[in-house]
Structures are given as structure tokens and as C-alpha cells.
Simulated scan of single mutants.
Amino acid sequence: MGNKWKFLIIRDLLVETKRFSVLKRSIGSISQKVLTDNLRQLETSGIVTRKVYAEVPPRVEYSLTPLGQSLDTVLNSMMTWGEHYKNKYEP
């Protein structure tokens, strides 16, 4: 998993399947190259699947595999921990 971008990609794909441009907008300040690299790594790891439609212009959609969807509980636990930590230790 390793970096903040992968967590944000998975978070957004937990909601629904997204096209590249929609995913890029939903994440924010990520560059196209960094998003592409992270999506490829997640695809290689079996967390994300990429579906290419034979259309003009080409359409590509990304979604989570069952393995990727199983990360939902992990991310929710991390969010709960983060909220607790933030509320307890932030001035």
C-alpha cells in the first residue's frame, strides 16, 4: 500500500467504479503520471481492475477487485483511529 495516493484511490473506488479523469478530479492535486503509476501498481497487486472499452475515444474504467473491496474495514478502522487521535491530541 505504501503511500497516501493509494489510500485515496482505494477510498474513492470503494464508492463506485470511476473513469481516470473522474478519479483524478476526486483525488485533487495528484499528477497524471503519479495516478497512472499508482493505478498500475494496484492493478499488479490485484487490488484494482482496469476495463478498457473499444470506443472512440477510448474509455477506461477502474474498479476494486474483491481483494480491494476487503480493504474497506481496514480503511474504516484507520479513519476511526485518526479521528480519535486528532480529537485527543490536537490543541
Rank of each mutant, 00 (worst) to 15 (best):
L75M: 11
Y62M: 12
L23T: 01
L23R: 06
I47H: 01
L35W: 04
K51I: 13
S63L: 02
V48W: 03
L42Y: 03
F7Q: 08
N38D: 14
L13W: 06
P91R: 01
K6F: 00
M79C: 08
E43G: 00
D12A: 06
L75H: 01
N87T: 14
S45N: 12
I9V: 11
N3K: 02
G46Y: 02
L75C: 02
V15F: 05
F20E: 03
E83R: 02
L13H: 03
S21L: 06
L64H: 05
A54R: 11
K6L: 00
L71Q: 07
I9F: 07
V74H: 14
W81G: 12
K4L: 08
R11Q: 14
N87E: 11
G2V: 09
K6Y: 00
N87D: 15
E16I: 00
L13V: 03
W5C: 06
N76R: 08
L67C: 03
T44S: 07
S77Q: 15
L75A: 02
S45F: 13
Y53F: 15
K33G: 04
S77F: 11
S77M: 14
I47T: 07
L8W: 07
E43A: 02
V48R: 05
R25S: 14
I10R: 03
V52Q: 14
S31I: 01
L39N: 02
R11G: 00
A54Y: 08
A54Q: 09
S21P: 00
T36L: 10
S29Y: 09
L67W: 05
Y85G: 01
I47N: 02
N38K: 03
E61F: 07
I27T: 03
R25A: 13
G28E: 04
K4W: 08
P58L: 13
V34T: 14
W5Y: 13
S21D: 03
N76Q: 11
G68W: 10
G68H: 10
V48G: 00
N76E: 12
G28W: 09
W81F: 15
S29G: 10
W81T: 13
R59G: 04
S26K: 12
P57Y: 07
V60C: 05
S21H: 06
G82K: 07
R40W: 08
A54G: 05
S26P: 04
E43N: 05
K86N: 12
G2S: 01
S31G: 06
L42S: 06
I10A: 10
L64Y: 07
R40P: 03
T44K: 10
K86C: 10
Y53C: 02
